[in-house]
Nucleic acid binder design. Structure first.
Lengths: 208, 208
DNA sequence: GTCTATAGAAGGATAGAC
DNA sequence: GTCTATCCTTCTATAGAC
């Protein structure tokens, strides 16, 4: 199905997704959305009433999209080393295809606490925890260390995408391609994390 | 010196910094800046001509501030394990005091390539590389692995701050305080990274 | 359902008095 | 230097013809 065949509401929704994902609520313009969709401004209001309602529809869809990918992976039942590799392969290739998505979510939930609530409400904590804990490398791991490990994994996968412009700029001065760099991280990051997990077990934290 | 004594230009600049850091260029309002500074809109234009010029002055100052902190720490001449601890202590306590700064920089350089150039131009790559390489744990580390290690360190320190709203929300459902969590990371992250470095040395990457 | 034209609100910028 | 009043542009939103 090409763009011409699509019904108008879909064309508008897709155009709005592009505009909002790129510029955020504050930077997006209804005129730009109309232009991208190849229709006029009045039609936007005919289908979605207000900019805010249109934005909400887009945010909801994108939050769902990002979240589904995360949760699904953590729930997998496999050993930690396999899970890590699978996570980075799946998750980062997803983010490569949607490079603006994490920045969009972060920007908007930071701007508007209501959106934060909307986003958090999608998370099913029980599934994630049980899925991870089942295959955790060390059964004696202190409770909070689990949270630290999770945040570390997410930091290592999401930040290189969120900070793409800066990292790309820095790498280019050393003649390294950003895309190649991200490709390498599919191997590097699981290796890094797995090494950290093993290393931490061998060399327990000195008490504070 | 309290706010009343300050000369007007400084009051405006400080108020603009708050407004821009919080809302970004697109979301900031000149009226809000005037209100925060306790003066009227006309004065903003008297001192800074346009919103864009005022924004540029603020961006320049904040980019410098963030960058100085980063660069200075990497240049330190000390062994890797001490450097890591020092980095996280210094860097994260700085970010705790300026929690909106990294989001601001990321949001704005993503929005406007000119700002990205401005930001990148501040970086002195030679100082950073020489300062890090001098105390790198493994002299035989492949070239790109150095870049991967650096990005990993920055990811682990910056992301938990950038994603504060989401992380805070998730932790609160498990009755963990965000501030306490960040405090713990001052110990956890250097330990995590140090363990990874040691672990990777012992367990070399299997060739792709 | 789709368009043109325009109303109406918001926000950046300026004129001019003091 | 600082203020009030106001202009002008930009943008969201609606009216009304087809």
């Amino acid at each position: 199905m090409n763009k011409e065949d699509k019904i108008t509401e879909d064309k508008i929704f897709d155009a709005a997704t592009e505009e909002f994902e790129e510029k955020g609520m504050d930077g997006a313009r209804m005129q730009n959305i109309a232009d991208r969709a190849g229709i006029n401004k009045a039609l936007l209001h005919y289908y979605f009433r207000t900019k805010d309602k249109l934005f909400m529809a887009v945010f909801d869809m994108l939050a769902e999209k990002l979240f589904k990918k995360f949760a699904g992976i953590f729930e997998l039942d496999m050993p930690m080393d396999k899970k890590l590799e699978y996570f980075f392969t799946e998750h980062m290739s997803f983010l490569e295809k949607n490079p603006k998505l994490p920045m969009f979510i972060l920007r908007e939930v930071t701007r508007n606490p209501e959106l934060l609530e909307k986003f958090l409400s999608k998370i099913n904590f029980e599934n994630i925890e049980s899925g991870m804990i089942k295959n955790i490398p060390r059964k004696d791991m202190p409770e909070n260390d689990f949270a630290h490990l999770m945040i570390s994994i997410v930091s290592l996968s999401v930040f290189p995408i969120v900070a793409k412009p800066i990292i790309e700029g820095i790498l280019s001065k050393q003649d390294i391609s950003y895309d190649k760099f991200i490709e390498e991280r599919l191997q590097y990051s699981p290796w890094f994390i797995q090494s950290a997990i093993l290393g931490m077990a061998e060399n327990p934290k000195n008490p504070k």
